[in-house]
């Protein structure tokens, strides 16, 4: 699998949100725990809708959760 051109701070944001589990976040976003784990690890690129839903759960703008990596196309 090709490496995704962006990183994310979901793990940190979960920790800051009272150590929210991947399962809890998945439930609130409407995806499985495995999908949250895959997004966190940079293995899966979520849809724009799921990305916005994740940001919404943390009360953050999208760019505070996902960051485009400099130097990538």
């Amino acid at each position: 699998m090709a490496r995704l051109p962006f990183t994310n701070d979901i793990r940190t944001l979960r920790f800051l949100a009272g150590e929210m589990t991947q399962g809890d976040l998945g439930e609130r976003v409407g995806v499985t725990r495995q999908t949250i784990a895959a997004i966190e690890q940079g293995k899966y690129s979520p849809s724009l809708e799921v990305a916005f839903r994740i940001a919404h759960v943390f009360g953050k703008p999208l760019e505070a959760v996902f960051q485009w990596e400099n130097g990538t196309g």
Partner: peptide
């Protein structure tokens, strides 16, 4: 706990 989980976009 996983039996009734709906398929999501990754699935």
């Amino acid at each position: 706990s996983e039996v009734n989980l709906a398929e999501d976009e990754r699935d």
